[in-house]
Design a protein around this nucleic acid. Structure first.
Lengths: 342, 342
DNA sequence: GATTGGGACTTTACCGGTTAAGAAAACGTT
DNA sequence: AACGTTTTCTTAACCGGTAAAGTCCCAATC
């Protein structure tokens, strides 16, 4: 029993009208009496018909697919709670517009540029979400050349003229450092993310500035690849210095590395937070699963994703560009931060 | 400077042939001399043209998109390293066939059935990957009725006549229990996943059987929703019994819950593995980031995803290989398991 | 009563490919 | 030289929609 495909023609025949009329009805366009409109919808319902998106796309109407290319080594990505959470936030908005997400992992920015271009020129997507901006990101120019609607996740200083949504990393870093300093810490380190990423640079600068302003006795920063392993390595090297010369508090750029740091401290016989305070970032549920629980700069990642998706729809429907920040991560103190040990 | 779209017509004109010829060339179909074939490819390259997938799909050729609907509360999903890793494995294969993944989070199976049907009937996808099978899963019938190519991730006993790829959960559970028993544990508990899922049932049955065969003094099982929180709750309730009456080893159905369990043990003043041994499942990098590191039933999730994707291509191209298992998870002992305390 | 102006639909021309059927050379055969 | 066969392309008809332009019919205006 092959379910022969139901097309607009069948619906038109059933409702006793032309294809065009059905199209008008389903796009809520004027030019049809309420009576026929009703007949058409009824016929469609009886036949279980819904417009074929492929045909609709080809015919030049809107495309109901949004592209998202994530550029990280695949294995690494598997571990980032951030992205899954972000994606689920994006989805939550797409779903109510009955849009889909086209997801692809790419190896580098160049590949992404090619992909986005292919997607756009092939009318595969109606717009895209761009993440992980770096300095002088080639995507800015590429996207502007294509005239493709996008929303960039990143600070306007990185995303050029693109509509962007960003978190105020500088303020958040400053707040984190001030908090630790207020607890009495004078030697603070930061285990940063990938050096190539723009927001890493922002955070690094903000950390330096805050450390300077507070006249800390010691301020270290290292960059990593965001993996737990590199976080562990960084922590180990920070903590091997003599007790009087090592940081008493460490800020991490994500939560995976903070978890790794916690484990390194334990392995070195240090008690958290007595011997060293740890502060995570992004605050996924993971931070509440460790012992002690991890203090974090927390952040509604799901809501962030939703916000980005909504902004993209704004761009697509020409409501015009307009960058805006989402709420700055707020400090959520838990068990991993305290005044430096007695 | 609007990049006017390059179409097959432009390529045809440039190569001095008809549209049809270009189509033949790009689909590697016979009926063209090597000379013209070459001219066509050259023209296409010069113009930077690639066939428009939307048009190609509409014209009745195959579709280069694979669907994947994941059915879990979005918030929960953000935390499952398993899925990100699985998806990245799938992608790794899709990418070399220049296919894309259409990903959607759904709330329940009924919604998924509707979605898959809409996708298929709308020619949005060329096939799908089905995950999280439950007993009497409605997707089996739905998909068979549609005649849609799919590969089911789950044991054949759950996936009916669908081509499936699965891990031998029963053997893995048995091995896990035997290992703990061999260490000397006589009271073992298992913190399982969602009760509604088929593989949870499989594991539960296997655990019971193994416990019986080994004549354990105590065997507990609970089901959860896979979240760290529910894992913590389960662990807490298992460990509050009197020391002589509580499990000395706990097996978890994923790694998040095992991490949570570790933290609960610490919070209760129990030392792992002296007071209680913990064994995780799925073994993401997370298991190596804790202290002590988590022993786990490990499993190449990335490779698993890749295998599933390859199998799907087999089904789509009618090469239709039947169901097959992927390697059974193997025990990776780390720091969280040891003989029961002195 | 002829003219005008809309509503309510229908026609028809695409969108950018695929593909079956047709036509024009090139080739071997008797 | 006439005649099937291939080989190589071209034509034209879809695929399932959208949208601009066209057709009808009827009420309103002059």
């Amino acid at each position: 029993m092959t379910t022969s495909r139901v097309t607009i023609k069948d619906v038109a025949a059933r409702a006793g009208v032309s294809k065009g009329a059905v199209s008008l009805a389903f796009n809520h366009k004027p030019g049809l009496s309420e009576a026929t409109r009703g007949r058409i919808f009824e016929a469609a319902k009886e036949l279980g018909w819904a417009p074929n998106l492929t045909a609709r796309t080809l015919a030049g109407s809107r495309v109901d697919v949004v592209g998202l290319a994530i550029c990280r080594p695949a294995r690494l990505l598997g571990l980032e709670p951030f992205y899954m959470e972000f994606v689920s936030g994006v989805e939550s908005v797409l779903i109510e517009r009955s849009c889909s997400l086209l997801l692809r992992l790419v190896r580098n920015v160049e590949e992404e540029v090619g992909l986005q271009e292919a997607w756009w020129r092939g009318r595969q997507i109606g717009g895209a979400i761009l993440v992980d901006f770096r300095l002088d990101d080639p995507r800015v120019a590429a996207v502007e050349r294509l005239g493709m609607p996008v929303v960039a996740v990143g600070h306007p200083s990185l995303t050029g003229g693109l509509t962007s949504v960003w978190t105020d990393d500088a303020t958040a870093v400053t707040e984190a450092v001030r908090y630790l300093a207020a607890l009495g810490h004078r030697r603070i380190a930061r285990v940063g993310g990938a050096a190539a990423l723009g927001h890493t640079a922002t955070r690094t600068a903000a950390f330096d500035e805050a450390a300077g302003a507070l006249e800390l006795a010691g301020a270290w920063q290292v960059t990593t690849d965001y993996s737990g392993e590199s976080g562990a390595r960084a922590t180990r090297s920070l903590l091997t210095a003599a007790p009087s010369d090592r940081p008493t508090a460490i800020v991490y750029d994500n939560d995976i590395m903070a978890v790794a740091g916690l484990s390194v401290a334990a392995e070195m016989g240090l008690t958290v937070p007595r011997d060293v305070s740890l502060l995570a970032w992004d605050d996924s549920q993971l931070c509440r699963l460790t012992h002690p629980t991890l203090s974090a700069m927390s952040h509604d990642v799901h809501g962030f994703g939703a916000d980005v998706a909504r902004t993209l729809f704004g761009v697509i429907t020409e409501e015009g560009p307009g960058s805006h920040p989402v709420p700055t991560p707020v400090l959520t103190p838990r068990g991993s931060t305290a005044p430096p040990g007695v």
